[in-house]
Computed example of a mutant assay.
Amino acid sequence: MKRPFIQRTLRFDPQQFARLEELAEQQGRSVSDMLRLAIAQYISGQQLLSASDLRHLRVAEYTQVALDAIIREEHPELRDTLVLETDRRMERYHGAR
């Protein structure tokens, strides 16, 4: 048994809607089909993005731990300088303090 669709009302910027209609016509789809497709692709992309973000965060943390261990063992005299430079760059390039 096919599940019924939930109906909602949306408001569009006229230029966006005109572009959406144009794309729908080019692809031989209805505007509704285009919207459903766009939402499905967005949701799928968010799930992939989240998994990808987690991988990047894990790699960044691993790299951080590995470099910190190497610096502590082989160049302990540089650690404070590196931490200060990191803080300076975080503030300069990312606005973080």
Score class of each variant (00 low, 15 high):
33 D>L: 06
47 Q>T: 00
9 T>W: 06
90 M>R: 10
95 G>C: 10
32 S>K: 11
11 R>K: 08
54 L>Y: 15
39 I>L: 12
39 I>T: 04
63 T>H: 10
45 G>H: 02
17 F>Y: 06
78 L>M: 04
85 E>A: 02
15 Q>S: 11
28 G>K: 02
35 L>F: 09
79 R>I: 00
53 D>I: 00
14 P>Q: 01
93 Y>V: 12
95 G>I: 13
47 Q>G: 01
52 S>F: 11
37 L>I: 10
12 F>L: 03
47 Q>H: 01
32 S>C: 12
51 A>R: 14
17 F>T: 04
56 H>M: 15
45 G>Q: 09
82 L>R: 06
97 R>C: 03
18 A>S: 12
57 L>C: 12
13 D>H: 06
25 E>V: 15
87 D>K: 15
27 Q>V: 07
19 R>S: 07
34 M>T: 11
85 E>T: 00
52 S>L: 07
13 D>C: 03
44 S>F: 09
20 L>P: 00
61 E>F: 15
72 R>M: 07
6 I>W: 02
25 E>W: 07
74 E>R: 13
60 A>R: 05
3 R>N: 09
50 S>T: 06
33 D>E: 14
28 G>C: 09
28 G>T: 08
28 G>E: 04
88 R>T: 11
16 Q>I: 09
60 A>W: 00
81 T>W: 10
1 M>Q: 03
77 E>L: 02
47 Q>W: 01
92 R>Y: 06
91 E>Y: 02
44 S>T: 13
40 A>D: 14
80 D>A: 15
81 T>H: 13
71 I>V: 11
54 L>T: 14
92 R>E: 12
82 L>C: 12
82 L>S: 07
52 S>D: 08
65 V>G: 01
42 Y>L: 13
68 D>F: 02
59 V>S: 05
70 I>K: 07
72 R>S: 15
70 I>P: 00
8 R>G: 05
15 Q>I: 15
67 L>V: 03
14 P>Y: 07
34 M>D: 05
92 R>M: 11
81 T>I: 04
27 Q>F: 04
87 D>E: 12
81 T>L: 05
71 I>F: 02
79 R>L: 01
11 R>L: 05
58 R>H: 11
97 R>I: 05
38 A>E: 03
17 F>L: 07
28 G>I: 03
4 P>T: 01
93 Y>A: 10
94 H>A: 14
96 A>M: 13
93 Y>E: 15
27 Q>R: 08
28 G>R: 08
57 L>D: 10
6 I>E: 12
76 P>K: 02
38 A>F: 06
95 G>Q: 05
18 A>K: 03
73 E>T: 14
64 Q>I: 03
6 I>T: 10
51 A>D: 14
71 I>A: 04
28 G>M: 01
41 Q>A: 15
94 H>T: 00
75 H>V: 08
2 K>Y: 02
50 S>G: 08
50 S>H: 12
4 P>C: 02
95 G>T: 10
34 M>Y: 13
69 A>K: 10
58 R>S: 13
41 Q>W: 10
26 Q>K: 14
67 L>I: 04
8 R>S: 00
18 A>H: 03
68 D>V: 04
70 I>S: 01
92 R>C: 03
49 L>H: 08
11 R>G: 09
91 E>L: 03
2 K>L: 04
85 E>R: 08
11 R>V: 11
67 L>H: 01
32 S>I: 13
46 Q>R: 12
94 H>D: 07
12 F>S: 02
47 Q>C: 00
34 M>S: 12
22 E>G: 06
65 V>R: 09
